[in-house]
Write a protein that binds this DNA or RNA. Sequence first.
DNA 1: TAATTCGCTAGACCGA
DNA 2: TCGGTCTAGCGAA
Length: 788
Amino acid sequence: MIKKAYFIDADYVVHKEDVYIRLYVKGKKLCRVYYKYEPYFYVDAPSKEKETIARVKAQTKTGETARVDRVEEVKKIVNGTEKKLLRVYCKKPSYVPELKATIPFNCYEYSIPFAKRFMFDFELVPFSLITYDREGKFITKIIKQKETEMSLSVLAFDIETYNPRGAPREQIDPAIMISWAGKTKGVVTYKESKREFVTKKNDEKEMLEEFHKVLQKENPDVIAGYNSANFDLPYLEKRTEATKAECYFGMWPGKIKGINKGLIKGVKTKGRIHVDLYPAARFFGFIGLVKTNQYTLEAVYNALTGKQKKMVQRLNIWEIWDSNSIDELADYSLMDATSTLEIANEFLPIFRELSIITKMPLFDVSLSTSGQLVEQLLMFNSIKRNMIIPPKPHAGTIQERLSNPIQGAYVKLPQPGIYENIAVMDFRGLYPSIIISYNISPETITNDDENVNVSPEGTKFLKKPMGLIPSVLEELVDYRTEIKKKLKKIDKDSEEYKRLYARQFSLKILANSFYGFSAYPRARWYSRECGSSTTAWGRQHILETIEEAGKHGLEVLYSDTDSVFMLYKKKDEVLQFMETVNKKLPEKMELELEAFYPRGVFVTKKIGGKEVGAKKKYALIDEEGRIKIRGFELVRRDWSGIARRTQRRVLEAILKEGSKEKAVNIVQEIIKKLKEGKVELEDLAISTQISKPPSQYEIKSPEISAALKAQKRGIEIQKGSVIRYVVTKNGKSISEKAELLEYAENYDVEYYLNNQLIPAVMKILKELGYQEEDLKVGGKQQSLDSFF
DNA sequence: TAATTCGCTAGACCGA
DNA sequence: TCGGTCTAGCGAA
């Protein structure tokens, strides 16, 4: 029977002596179909060994005998050269590593997860429509597939728990409320509420069963929560067991399954894609899509939508519950679910596109890092081109690579000051365009002298044929260019625009990760030569550009990696200069004008008592009055809000209005407020993320000290937590004075003046002629002391 | 078992 | 009390 359905995901099952790939496909509804498939790997041995290898046996840890099933001779491309290899088949995926360990020859592709191997071999694309021949539950043939427009339905949810002891205990403390937002939205609980969106049940068990009913009725493709892999889903599962409720979260009955991918925890439900938006937010924070100092639901929602979300004190939830007037709690809970849905609506389209481009199921994508996405994309394309996938490096190799890092980009030392008329230009996609232009790939490295690109460091790369990495990268870059052209013609509010926008964004994420991946010590495609040649060519191009500017009589103020800042008198001379540069560049490379800036500030830093220009720190204002700020304290989350905001206002006063007086007035006003104790503690909080558990630090920094004090109060603080602390009056050193925001009762005026506000604003005021001495009593210039 | 290197800054720590 | 060194975090690209 010929069937058509969307392909969603695949895993495998072992049934008696056979292995079946289990495909999750969606026609009218989601179903599972099975395809018999055999595991295999490659052995680099001469043909005459075929018979010997066919007889290889190995004992598995469970006492089974792993046997080679059959051996085929195949031709594969190994490191750029075609080679005869033996393809060795066996019955079960678990036999592969055992057999590999027993065979006394070099082996390849023995650590590719079996379901992935299947998807690679059939070039299956998630969310594409596949046609297959089916007998009962079994697929006999996969006929064809095409990429289509399967859209995803989403249900976001959130739970509230009874927590008289702070953190709720899943064995004892019940869940008290579940809210959801999808096609419908609502709250289910078991106390009386006047809110019309609340469904009241009799107890926790009935509440769980009601939520289950909602899930079955809406039947979303995706369920999304915030921190739901760590908290909500495991908690609900435990409560389901405790109350013996009839409740599950997937399409079919069954327990949730914890998945550890790297250090990220995921939870799988049977036949529904569960996406935890918390690690997703971290990923998008890393990419630069989400800019926030914290990764709480509120902060991420705020950063993403610009809307403010009200919070309820988590500590008080149980009190509200006991008070019996739960209306407000229901409001908050519903708001959590709806804002989770909004976040999902931002993230999922990008995950969906990443999934289609990398051919990795959405669930896996949602738990992947950019390195894993690139690796997956290269693995897929490697197989498609009949190339052997390089093995993962061993621990020793990784160590060696780690201890031998490559040289990076060039950064020019700026001359500090306030400037007028700055032109900024940059190389569009510098590293990707270099990799493509010079055909930088591990297998194109050669000793030949003809038809090669020689890097500034002397590594030679064949000009032809195109290597795996440059060719995959070029596909991404060209595809993105094509989409961006299309986007210009489409209505910005249309569904198609949103989808294509997400696609070009995904392509950008991937393209930008290639260089990093080739210099990543754990990468299968790591190559020191490729990584360092890429940056070497980058340095060469930028230095040549700076030199060329000099020839054109343009003074270069600053340059970082792929950008050049220069002073100009006429815009024409800048455009002419760019034309000269672009004529000499390889086809894929281009120097683009970023913008003309009427005014800009570069500041100083101190080094060994001397003052020099600071790199990676500047502010510019463009012709529309938009300000671009890089590196200043005000963009850093580990500075207090008051210092950051004041620094911004000072910069704006100077850039927008060119007014010293206004800048000084702003500082005066804030100093007064600080001294009068009128600044909100929230505004004084400093956020720092800790990478280890607090007890494991050698040095007691303020954030660690605050965290340790909070732990004594019974607060749980894990590694990865963002500590928000305030420097109070109580103690001697800064560390001693530090307290978590929620426990701080006062603030240390001196600290906030001398260690936050003044250093931040002086960075800029210095450029206006104010000196460090002016801060001290008796300074001879207009004394800033008068208002300090 | 989380893509890269370059660069700035703080506060603790340590010895004079 | 000072100045140098080190640890740690975060941002630019």
